[in-house]
Design a protein around this nucleic acid. Structure first.
Lengths: 314, 314
DNA sequence: CCATTTATGCTCAAGATGAGCATTTACCCG
DNA sequence: CGGGTAAATGCTCATCTTGAGCATAAATGG
């Protein structure tokens, strides 16, 4: 066992997500903190800190750091991924490794705190929000990606790059897979279209410190996948909510719009919610019944999520 | 940043899986190595070693260790989970953390090598194999679990334990979810039914060194889930195979038997395979056509896996 | 030639899904 | 107070997808 001076540095990082719902729309949010010593414009990052001997477990260490840096206490937490040495200087044999164990946390309320701030996550991935149709920025992004593909050395490499573009961003008009957030980010990174990789503008989104945007991308992809087979959306909802709100949150997460009637049929038949006796007149039209999550489903057999059936537009 | 003497120790561990197919049956396998300094009977473990400064990336470090310890070179590899301090003495504040970053690898051939050995993974989880119906051992296991539930302090805790047993092991006769391998193992662990937790016998499976059985459980659960939505089974198949073999491998992984005709319908309509012009008379009856995996599907839109439709028996 | 065994083809009834049409019940505006 | 607008709800319908079986085909071992 090699130990001592060459032992790796291990950090803990948290992608903390929430959904801010006002009466008409939902903004998906991520909690950020300022990170010192970064290039201009790259000063936002995720709550993070080194694993310390005093931390009883990884997760407890994470919670401690988050609470210290943001005042936010976490409910639902799951491990996301352990990131290696993306930013390590090459050839530096003998250097210490720097690892980050990233976690995904879902919280209900977005209380502001200390130095931290809640940001819309589409600030970092503008092209991931298709709720209002295909984002305009995609036009320019596609153009640059194609230029990158054409610049490949040799027709074979060109084809491979084009395949990859099609696979991650979808064939024009169709084939968008909302879960491939990370693959898209990595493609943009390799193509040099993000500021972290040297791009001069923020067409493909605001940068974050270090490799935090990669972590955020990993979290979004994971969450977008997970809502389909586990009832995790409810970790983001208030105790009582309307089906309309629930749908808007799911749409905010997945970045696509859903067919309303089918969505509620699904939620209903899955037995995920139950009616309360209250209604709300919050929104324009007919008052909606307030629902609550049936926690019991967690004890029932398959523990289903919400398969997404897109509506028009998407 | 606290560094130096308190820096954590970081290990890499590999769960390397293969499927040994002879003409009639399939045995799912895991590659093990002897681990020194373990209690009697706990001497089998996973290939593993510390992360070293010379390793360019985590994954490369893992491959290096595996090759050194077993001679096996890895194809498909994915990160599984980072395990914290399960076996750390409590109260030892100031101790160094010991982490293991575990990976899942799928390989085609099970070549024997060096000190390593291929074991059936149901040796470690006998109750996970339902291919021949409900395993006999489950009877006794269920009994002990219920005893454990009854021993809970207070009716509330009892109910919670019973709920959990039902949730992970399924209601009698139905409700078995083959993906919950880890939850079942952890339940057995907490109930003290596995040797790692002090059980006097191996009714609930052979033990492994350290927390390696937990890693194996994590890997099986992940793989059982993943074959349903990604075509990863093919990493375990030879270049050409019959649909019968493919089915038997999937059954070996998932531990349940499937409806034959529906299985092939699924594989066919997903376009996962294509016919070769060869047939084989290997098995008893009518010769089967040899198929090959259509690698192109990896470039096609949804990249589907194999939803499992159980046959009778299961 | 017959029984046995696995490979393949096909059919059928239920359920789950994707798209819409039609009503209901508030609020807002003259 | 009647009309227009905005959701929330109820329902229908044509397809697909699934779960189960029945029926045939093509080898092998007596």
């Amino acid at each position: 066992m090699s130990e001592g001076a060459s032992a790796p540095m291990v950090g803990l990082a948290a992608v903390i997500l929430a959904a801010a719902l006002d009466s008409t729309s939902v903004e998906p949010r991520v909690l950020t903190v300022p990170v010192a010593g970064q290039p201009a414009g790259h000063g936002e990052g995720l709550p993070a800190g080194p694993l310390e001997p005093a931390h009883p477990t990884l997760e407890r260490g994470l919670r401690a750091w988050v609470e210290r840096q943001t005042g936010q206490s976490l409910g639902y937490v799951e491990q996301l991924y352990t990131f290696g040495d993306r930013n390590r200087r090459p050839g530096g044999d003998g250097e210490r490794h720097a690892l980050s164990i990233a976690y995904l946390a879902l919280v209900r309320e977005a209380r502001p705190a200390a130095d931290s701030a809640w940001q819309s996550w589409y600030r970092y991935f503008p092209y991931e929000d298709r709720r209002a149709g295909r984002p305009a920025a995609l036009e320019a992004i596609a153009e640059r990606l194609n230029a990158w593909a054409r610049a490949a050395p040799g027709p074979d490499a060109q084809r491979r790059r084009l395949d990859r573009i099609g696979l991650t961003f979808g064939a024009p008009g169709s084939g968008w897979n909302e879960e491939r957030v990370l693959e898209r980010y990595e493609l943009l990174f390799e193509a040099g279209l993000v500021p972290e990789a040297g791009a001069p503008d923020t067409l493909a989104g605001q940068p974050m410190a270090l490799d935090h945007r990669r972590m955020l991308a990993t979290a979004l992809g994971r969450l977008r996948g997970k809502i389909k087979y586990r009832p995790v959306v409810f970790e983001l909802m208030p105790p009582a909510f309307t089906l309309g709100q629930l749908q808007r949150v799911v749409e905010a997460l997945s970045g696509i719009v859903l067919h309303k009637q089918n969505f509620r049929r699904l939620v209903a038949q899955q037995g995920l919610v139950e009616e309360t006796d209250a209604v709300t007149a919050e929104t324009g039209g007919r008052p909606a019944r307030l629902m609550r999550f049936r926690r019991e489903v967690l004890l029932e057999r398959p523990a289903p999520g919400l398969r997404l059936s897109p509506g028009r537009l998407a």
